[in-house]
Design a protein around this nucleic acid. Sequence first.
DNA 1: AATGAATGAGACTTCATTCAT
DNA 2: GATGAATGAAGTCTCATTCAT
Lengths: 228, 228, 228, 228
Amino acid sequence: MPPKEAEKPANAYHAHRERQRRRILDAAWKLFDERGIDRVTMTEITSTAGVRPSTMYQYFANKDDIVWAFMRELIQDASGRAMQGVDAASSALTRLTALMNFMANDLVTNQAEIRFMAQFDAMYARDWPAERLISLELQINPGGFQAFSELIREGIADGSLRSDLDPDLTMHAVMNAVIGAQRRLASLGNKIEQEYGKPIDRMFRETIRILLLGLRAPESPAPNPQKT
Amino acid sequence: MPPKEAEKPANAYHAHRERQRRRILDAAWKLFDERGIDRVTMTEITSTAGVRPSTMYQYFANKDDIVWAFMRELIQDASGRAMQGVDAASSALTRLTALMNFMANDLVTNQAEIRFMAQFDAMYARDWPAERLISLELQINPGGFQAFSELIREGIADGSLRSDLDPDLTMHAVMNAVIGAQRRLASLGNKIEQEYGKPIDRMFRETIRILLLGLRAPESPAPNPQKT
Amino acid sequence: MPPKEAEKPANAYHAHRERQRRRILDAAWKLFDERGIDRVTMTEITSTAGVRPSTMYQYFANKDDIVWAFMRELIQDASGRAMQGVDAASSALTRLTALMNFMANDLVTNQAEIRFMAQFDAMYARDWPAERLISLELQINPGGFQAFSELIREGIADGSLRSDLDPDLTMHAVMNAVIGAQRRLASLGNKIEQEYGKPIDRMFRETIRILLLGLRAPESPAPNPQKT
Amino acid sequence: MPPKEAEKPANAYHAHRERQRRRILDAAWKLFDERGIDRVTMTEITSTAGVRPSTMYQYFANKDDIVWAFMRELIQDASGRAMQGVDAASSALTRLTALMNFMANDLVTNQAEIRFMAQFDAMYARDWPAERLISLELQINPGGFQAFSELIREGIADGSLRSDLDPDLTMHAVMNAVIGAQRRLASLGNKIEQEYGKPIDRMFRETIRILLLGLRAPESPAPNPQKT
DNA sequence: AATGAATGAGACTTCATTCAT
DNA sequence: GATGAATGAAGTCTCATTCAT
């Protein structure tokens, strides 16, 4: 097959390009993690990657380009994993609980990534147009956050969640609190840990517990036989 | 009185110095708010303040010095206000509610300040030594966060809060969540507002409501028999 | 031959780099000589060399780096030449004389270089660590100054030098005096010349003559009995 | 006496001015000694002296002015002391010896001052007009160096010095060597000491010894009994 | 595709010095 | 006479980026 001869070099080419790209990204990640996104210069990235600046510009136009590349990767990873544990579950409250536990585990296993997102929010969100961010968030949760507010709606219906919740409002309120708490712990957690002496996910799990207690329907009527 | 003549120049001196300092800080604040702490250069601050670079260095040694000056001011302001509404209140739950409502109002009236703190956390906290940060947080809440966990302890005792709470853990968990939520809304809120169409403090108040519901003792058995 | 094509670029590269480096060094040397090492700024060097500041920093990290580059060159030159006339000579005194005459010639042909070293001693030696200076002096005289004190030892043995000399002490004393005299004449000589009207090497040769007379063994008793 | 009233304030005024001047000079001296004349800025001098820059300019127009003030002081001191031991002595050689011993003692007791002069030569001599330097050297030795060459002339006449000396040439040659050796030891001596392990004045005294041996007339006639 | 060289632009900072009070 | 404030001028150095090969 003639195409094959033509393909091979193209594949080798792409493989090489991908390897170089990865080298640069790895170097950048290491530096971002060590020193914060600002505080890292293009020059440092190239020298850490062992690549000449002129070479780097064949792969990335500027630092924002690199930061953005990480965001894409992080989002893809996250959205993939987030849905795994949740899909199969049964009751709305159970699924909500599973989703939040997933975020707690994430805090432990991907602290650096979450810290990166916290920096991103603080520094970049301001400059980048809203659509870009929205299209990005849409990728996190295919179907946007609708899936989440749908979950709340279901919970109200099946009686596992309070009946006085406004699904959309609650969704935004809870998501923002959970993400805010998670990112703050990822950023400052080590200092808090030093002060308080307990691992950060312990605190985060307590946050979740209280939030879920707050969302849960008052169990009074059902479990209270005397009431009847 | 002769002393007065001697006093005047010293006062005039301090007054002038303070005015200049303020000019520089105001310029810096404007730029920080518009573009983010990074993205602002000393040169820009000087030219916005209408001061020569060499003059500016008579007031601030570098950008960190300015950032730090803001932190001090913000903390002093915050700690002063935070305690006002809370002191007088009666039950622990009421006081907790008052404290959180204060933070919600703060979000509305001091969004820029909170956004600044969010940037500070994400970008600067990493570099500055833990002690400096801690001593700073101690200033926010004189008596540290102990006052807050004390509140929880009281709430457990007077039956207004759940009995299964670990005061210290809960304190850290709730504070972190509330601050994290508040700062995230201050930073990204405008974009979320655009998407969702409701003011950010609405979401924040819902966050508070749910958290407090989660903290509250299940009222069912005790208070409700008479209700029937 | 294909390899040649591969070699060329590398050579061309090095050749170009060396040419640029030389351009900068030449400009620096001219300015150092005209105005003294201090009094010359990096900016002046770049503009004299016809190079942009940013380019210059690809070659030298700072002024010290340039000064140090000169020291290395001067030392290599000096150590090479110093040993030429001396090696072949026969008696210790003759060789000592040859060594000193070499320094007198050096004063004439390399006055600027010696003046540079004088400046270096007075201004820079203080800052640079002793080891760096020592390792530098070791390069001047391979085998350190030992060769010189060995010469004195031989002279004592063959009767051409005074028997009451302490070789190491004498070596340091004479070397320091000769170098000190040489450098002072290179630095101030022109003014002395104007005052006294004779070329500086004339004075330096007289210094040498007197020192060698002082080192020489009193010849009278031994060689002269027959003379009567 | 009416004049007295008028004098007092004037005296107090001068006393104060002199005290301030001294404060500044002391601070400058400390810094020059620690770091070298270049490397010290006016700002540092003022802050070390505990005086405002604007005040300092009431006393000295610039750094050169301060350096020059030291030179005047050093010269006055030196010329005063140099002549003390020498005046009384008898034979020319003895007086020469006394003069040089004085310089050896000077090296020990005034190393900092001599180091200062070495720096001065290396950095300033170039810029300042010859007349200024000459008039300065004339002050060191009232009657210029003539006194010294006169000494040599006497020594030749009284038979204590070699008869083949050219008084003027020898004077310049010896003075230059001695001063050059002395200043080099004062500047670098500590490093040489570390290397060689003996105090610097030991080396300097050996230099003197050899020079004087070289100047001294061959004693042949007297000590040679056979000659008779 | 890789890279050496070059560089415009500018950031940060320091200094000596002046001037009004 | 002392000094606080201001500042012009300059110096050092870094960085992102381009371009020719």
